[in-house]
């Protein structure tokens, strides 16, 4: 193992160059727990518009908890620290407010909701966000046009839209549906929580392709993953290693390749 070879910097998520530009997301010394189990222990991270940050790390490191903290999942309790998102205190906002501010979480296990039609759900979500932002509601014909345009991008079958949310969807269809929702809602910050889990290689490519089409200078991504293979398709600007509730290493894409070779055994040394 030779970490010098990939020129790692111990940044702990703090890159002085961020300060030159506007910062979209600033996570400062976050401590969080689920029940009595302390999971995040002083995590720092800054994300600028347009950047893709990959979060990797061993099981139980706190990767998904980080996503849950940002999305506002109530099961996670933040005990210390702050999260600034475009000048707002994210931790003060309810889940739906965060979504309307532009935070989107693509779930590792998308929930099946019997009886709630996918289209109805999406239109309700889009219009709720538009209302929050003081915009007028999107009428059904404009919405339908938007949906048709985006569904092609995700290579999804039309009939999935008419079915209840995620009900009876395969694993791949659920993940594609998450990215499809993202394409409709157009968030500023998307958190992909192990979106690659349970996907075969073709589905992975489709999902990654969908994400790449949504990449732009104003939209940032936090990609939580166990495996380097997703990062072959969604090339990150930064790779962070999360261990024991903190970011312990930060590097570029080559760090992911290194981890693929070496695993996380070095963390114990």
């Amino acid at each position: 193992m030779n970490f010098k070879r990939c020129k790692l910097k111990r940044l702990d998520g703090q890159n002085p160059s961020y300060e030159k530009n506007k910062i979209m997301l600033k996570i400062n010394n976050i401590h969080a727990q689920v029940g009595d189990n302390k999971i995040l222990k002083g995590l720092n991270l800054q994300v600028k518009p347009g950047e893709v940050h990959a979060i990797m790390g061993p099981n139980g490191a706190g990767k998904s908890t980080l996503g849950n903290v940002l999305a506002g999942m109530e099961k996670v309790q933040v005990t210390e620290g702050s999260v600034d998102f475009l000048g707002k205190d994210l931790l003060e906002l309810e889940i739906e407010q965060r979504a309307s501010e532009g935070v989107f979480m693509a779930f590792q296990y998308p929930v099946e909701i019997p009886g709630v039609n996918n289209m109805y759900f999406l239109r309700a979500a889009l219009n709720a966000q538009r209302k929050y932002r003081g915009e007028s509601e999107m009428n059904s014909s404009v919405f339908l046009k938007l949906v048709r345009e985006k569904i092609k991008m995700m290579n999804m079958r039309d009939d999935l839209l008419r079915r209840p949310v995620n009900e009876g969807f395969s694993g791949g269809e659920k993940k594609r549906n998450e990215i499809f929702q993202m394409s409709i809602l157009e968030p500023k910050l998307a958190i992909l929580d192990e979106t690659d889990s349970g996907l075969d290689i073709d589905a992975l490519k489709i999902v990654a392709d969908g994400v790449n089409q949504l990449r732009n200078a104003d939209r940032s991504f936090i990609v939580i993953t166990h495996y380097q293979r997703l990062l072959d398709y969604i090339v990150p600007d930064f790779v962070h290693v999360l261990a024991d509730g903190k970011i312990v290493r930060t590097g570029d894409k080559s760090l992911a390749l290194e981890l693929e070779e070496t695993g996380y055994g070095w963390l114990d040394k």
Binding site: I95, E96, F104, V111, A128, Q129
Partner: peptide, 16 residues
């Protein structure tokens, strides 16, 4: 879980 999922897309709690 369903409630949280709907809210995570911006739908207010009561509407969800």
């Amino acid at each position: 879980l369903s409630l949280t999922y709907l809210r995570s897309r911006g739908i207010p709690k009561e509407q969800a």
